[in-house]
Amino acid sequence: MTGLILKPQTEDTHYGIPVVHIGEDGAMLALGHHTPRRALAAFNRHARVFVGLANLADDRSVRAADYIPLISQRHGIFRKPDRASEWEDPDWEWVVVWSVPEHPDAQPITVLDI
């Protein structure tokens, strides 16, 4: 696969976890596999520090139990955007393609899917 990115750029690191928003609906990605509670702490801090929200929901009445089920561990391959694709913006830093863990270029990722 051409255009591989071994260390994708993220927006910030919280509690030692590199975090970045993906998509437009508030979903986030953390490099590495982390426990759901640890990942949630990093995602919440990112929402506070990077976006300026009270927490992920911008609602102090929301509980961790509301978000834990939205966190999953996956594997993906990071690459440069395909300029020929109508779905990928050539100005993006990278694109992640979900993969099986056995793929030689797969990296562990923790995802908050909102």
Rank of each mutant, 00 (worst) to 15 (best):
residue 1 M to D: 07
residue 2 T to N: 12
residue 3 G to P: 00
residue 3 G to Q: 00
residue 3 G to T: 05
residue 4 L to F: 06
residue 6 L to T: 14
residue 6 L to V: 08
residue 7 K to F: 00
residue 9 Q to L: 03
residue 9 Q to R: 15
residue 9 Q to N: 06
residue 11 E to H: 10
residue 11 E to Q: 15
residue 12 D to S: 15
residue 13 T to I: 09
residue 17 I to S: 06
residue 18 P to V: 00
residue 18 P to F: 01
residue 20 V to L: 02
residue 20 V to P: 02
residue 22 I to V: 15
residue 24 E to V: 01
residue 24 E to H: 06
residue 24 E to K: 06
residue 25 D to A: 11
residue 25 D to F: 09
residue 27 A to F: 02
residue 27 A to S: 15
residue 28 M to K: 15
residue 28 M to P: 03
residue 29 L to G: 08
residue 30 A to M: 00
residue 30 A to E: 00
residue 30 A to C: 12
residue 32 G to E: 00
residue 33 H to M: 04
residue 35 T to C: 05
residue 35 T to V: 05
residue 37 R to A: 13
residue 37 R to I: 06
residue 39 A to H: 01
residue 40 L to H: 02
residue 43 F to E: 04
residue 44 N to W: 01
residue 44 N to R: 09
residue 47 A to E: 11
residue 48 R to H: 06
residue 48 R to F: 03
residue 49 V to E: 14
residue 50 F to H: 13
residue 53 L to M: 12
residue 57 A to M: 12
residue 58 D to I: 07
residue 58 D to E: 08
residue 58 D to V: 06
residue 58 D to K: 03
residue 59 D to Y: 10
residue 59 D to S: 08
residue 59 D to L: 09
residue 60 R to A: 14
residue 60 R to C: 05
residue 60 R to K: 12
residue 61 S to G: 03
residue 61 S to Q: 10
residue 62 V to G: 01
residue 62 V to Q: 11
residue 64 A to P: 11
residue 66 D to G: 10
residue 68 I to Y: 04
residue 69 P to R: 10
residue 69 P to E: 02
residue 69 P to Q: 06
residue 72 S to A: 13
residue 72 S to C: 12
residue 72 S to P: 07
residue 73 Q to C: 15
residue 73 Q to H: 08
residue 74 R to D: 12
residue 74 R to H: 13
residue 76 G to Y: 00
residue 76 G to V: 07
residue 77 I to G: 09
residue 79 R to C: 14
residue 81 P to A: 06
residue 81 P to N: 08
residue 83 R to I: 09
residue 83 R to G: 10
residue 84 A to W: 09
residue 84 A to Q: 14
residue 85 S to K: 09
residue 85 S to D: 13
residue 87 W to L: 14
residue 89 D to P: 10
residue 90 P to H: 02
residue 91 D to C: 04
residue 91 D to H: 11
residue 92 W to I: 00
residue 92 W to E: 13
residue 93 E to G: 07
residue 93 E to K: 13
residue 93 E to N: 14
residue 93 E to Y: 10
residue 94 W to S: 13
residue 94 W to K: 11
residue 95 V to A: 07
residue 96 V to Q: 07
residue 98 W to F: 15
residue 98 W to Q: 10
residue 98 W to P: 12
residue 98 W to I: 09
residue 99 S to M: 05
residue 100 V to P: 05
residue 100 V to G: 14
residue 100 V to W: 04
residue 101 P to K: 11
residue 101 P to I: 03
residue 102 E to P: 04
residue 103 H to T: 08
residue 103 H to C: 09
residue 104 P to E: 11
residue 104 P to L: 07
residue 104 P to N: 07
residue 105 D to H: 15
residue 106 A to M: 07
residue 108 P to R: 02
residue 108 P to Y: 01
residue 108 P to H: 03
residue 109 I to Q: 02
residue 109 I to N: 03
residue 109 I to C: 08
residue 112 L to V: 10
residue 113 D to Q: 12
residue 113 D to E: 12
residue 114 I to N: 04
